[in-house]
Design a protein around this nucleic acid. Structure first.
Length: 585
RNA sequence: GCUGAUGUGGCUCAAUGGCAGAGCAUCUCACUCGUAAUGAGAAGGUUGUGGGUUCGAUUCCCACCAUCAGCUCCA
């Protein structure tokens, strides 16, 4: 294989190495221009690289441009990257002499047996495990772009000092960099916050930060989504309940939420009793289960709830519909025997697959394990983690482990979907829980006539309905499939002589359960088409004298395709089929 | 919550220490038109909120609120 082929960006390992070297070049440029700045750490990341620096002031755009220029210079200098190792005490001394306290801390925290390696390029040396490309000349200087400078905590710990993180991207060719930047620009156009306003789906106001308002069209979308949700869940044997939005403190103490999450809960006092607005639906669900005796014959018992929950998220974390303080969870609790656990988990994953594929969404799975702050024994946790792992492994699914990120009551499988910029958002989750049944003393009567304790899963597919709407808005760039589209057909009149006919068409479509709208304005047809297209309405029916005479509608799609004149019957059949099969176009 | 940036009609964006402007949207009038923007006119603003500096603040300063990017968090 030739060298050209080894050093290809298609190869993820090489790409990461390339970016890693870029971060060292950035640090070297920084040291040349600002010798007083302390170095922290600079890895490659999924889509580029960054380096954290300790400096009192953030870097201005001008300074970033200067750094970029210096980086280009370093690339041209073709400095060899040379690796060497030092014993721990010498490594510490080396970095102390260089006046790099962060590096000293990193070295000191390395495990006893760690190999402590450095990379030297010209006059610059950095602590680094590597690997790196062999020379700074490998890096294409004019395809490097420093994209942002933002604050980040030293070692990700919010109680420690704030560093300045400089982000960058780099490619082997200038064209590829331009293409990448172009793609980011394009992606911004499908931002659900922008589309949400343009399409009249939802709004956010200063009067209620993090509390979204749904507008008429957004409400149609939401309700259509919920209709679909109910249809799927009915098929999988779920029943639906609704539990109160506020419950007393005693209940939250019993569930453990008061101890673990009080700071994120909205509370109030009613008749001198503390109440909390629910941040989760489960305690209410426990009460429903416990309200009557259950037989093993009833299990697994699948109980769904579209529950409105409130959580006091940090102001800085709010983000359109992706991160809000009040949202609807498509929650469900499945109560079962221990023997049923694997089957129920797999059945749930199949349900997830069915739902996500309806939207053409792909996901990644994370298995989150026992957090420090947990209830239940370690053995119980490990047993439950193993069950989750076995269930998805058996289905041939890949997953990554997210150590210590489980819910306080149990391990979970999280299903992440990506937004327009490739940022991933947790939507679905399956949480295995044997703690709450214990705390709420849930029981069922077994075949043996004795009382037993069930186990349960907490699960959401869409996650937060609000977040899911945000995700699919970006996924479809606002051009929802016809079955979901708030307006499915817009009837556009050529002249006002067609207004009556347009009204009849609309009424006929409405009677068949479609969602039509008319545009009877005294405007040119070109303008009406343009606006309906921008509204991303799947079908436009142009009606004029000719159509009245022939009793037809002239069909155009939002994609600009002219399907020609056809009878209303023919069009309705076409749309009906598309809606029935939930076709994605 | 932390660091930084931003906040001007419904929307997108100008401008200035001295009368706040455009396009789109809205309303009115004319045009009755066949597949991505017809023309003319009108109306619409205490420049996020509250203080301060100044003869005068939308502009400069401070605080707060919200938004944006990132960090942290996300049961």
């Amino acid at each position: 294989m030739s060298e050209e082929n080894i050093y290809t960006f298609e190869n993820e390992t090489y790409r990461k190495t390339y970016w890693h070297t870029c971060s060292h070049i950035l640090a070297q440029a920084m040291k040349r221009l600002h010798p007083e700045v302390k170095l922290a750490i600079g890895p490659s990341i999924d889509n580029g690289f960054y380096y954290d620096f300790d400096t009192p002031e953030p870097f201005s755009e001008t300074q970033l441009a200067e750094l970029e220029a210096e980086m280009r210079k370093i690339c041209k200098e073709k400095l060899k990257l040379e690796r060497f190792e030092l014993p721990r005490d010498e490594a510490v001394k080396f970095m102390e002499e260089k006046g790099e306290p962060y590096k000293v801390e990193l070295i000191n925290d390395l495990p006893e047996d760690a190999v402590i390696s450095f990379y030297k390029q010209g006059d610059f040396t950095d602590l680094c495990a590597g690997p790196h490309v062999d020379s700074t000349g490998r890096i294409k200087g004019n395809a490097i772009k420093l994209t942002a400078c933002n604050a980040a905590y030293w070692r990700g710990d919010s109680s420690r000092q704030t560093l300045q993180r400089i982000y960058g991207v780099a490619f082997p060719k200038k064209d590829e960099l331009d293409e990448y930047l172009q793609r980011i620009e394009e992606a911004k156009k499908r931002d659900h916050r922008k589309l949400g306003r343009e399409l009249g789906l939802f709004m956010l106001r200063d009067e209620g930060p993090g509390f979204p308002f749904f507008l008429p069209k957004g409400m149609v979308l939401k309700n259509t989504l919920l209709d679909y949700w109910r249809e799927v869940h009915k098929k999988y044997g779920y029943v639906e309940i609704s539990t109160p939005i506020m419950l007393n403190r005693q209940l939250w103490e019993r569930s453990g939420h008061w101890d673990h999450y009080k700071n994120n809960m909205y509370t109030t006092v009613i008749d001198e009793v503390d109440f909390a607005v629910k941040p989760m639906n489960c305690p209410g669900g426990m009460l429903v289960y416990a309200s009557e005796p259950h037989s093993y014959r009833d299990l697994p018992l699948r109980v769904g709830e579209i529950g409105l929950v409130h959580r006091h998220e940090l102001s800085g974390a709010l983000h359109g519909l992706f991160r809000v303080r009040c949202f609807n969870q498509d929650d469900a609790h499945v109560f079962m025997t221990r023997e049923q656990m694997q089957d129920v988990i797999q059945e749930t994953v199949r349900l997830f697959d069915e739902v996500y594929s309806t939207f053409g969404l792909s996901y990644t799975i994370e298995l989150s394990t026992m957090p420090e702050d947990h209830i239940g024994t370690v053995e119980e946790w490990e047993r439950n983690q193993d069950i989750l792992k076995a269930a998805i492994t058996d289905m041939g699914k890949d997953f990554v482990i997210n150590e210590g990120d489980g819910a306080f009551y149990g391990p979970k499988l999280d299903f992440h979907l990506a937004d327009s910029l490739g940022r991933t958002w947790q939507c679905g989750t399956i949480q295995l829980d044997s703690q709450l049944p214990e705390r709420f003393e849930l029981e069922y009567v077994g075949e043996d006539g004795q009382k037993h304790r069930p186990v349960m899963i907490h699960r959401v597919v869409l996650g937060s309905i609000e977040r899911f709407i945000g995700v699919i808005t970006e996924h479809f760039a606002g051009a929802f499939p016809a079955w979901l589209s708030p307006v499915q057909v817009k009837i556009l009149t050529v002249t006002d002589r067609a207004n009556g006919y347009a009204g009849e068409i609309a009424a006929a479509l409405d009677a068949r359960g479609f969602r039509p709208e008319t545009d009877l304005r005294n405007e040119k047809i070109g303008k009406k088409i343009r606006e309906a297209t921008l509204e991303k309405i799947p079908y436009m029916l142009v009606v004029g004298d000719r159509d009245i005479e022939n009793q037809t509608v002239s069909v155009r799609t939002r994609g600009g395709e002219d399907l020609g004149a056809m009878s209303l019957e023919a069009f309705a059949a076409l749309l009906e089929e598309e809606v029935r099969t939930r076709t994605i176009k």
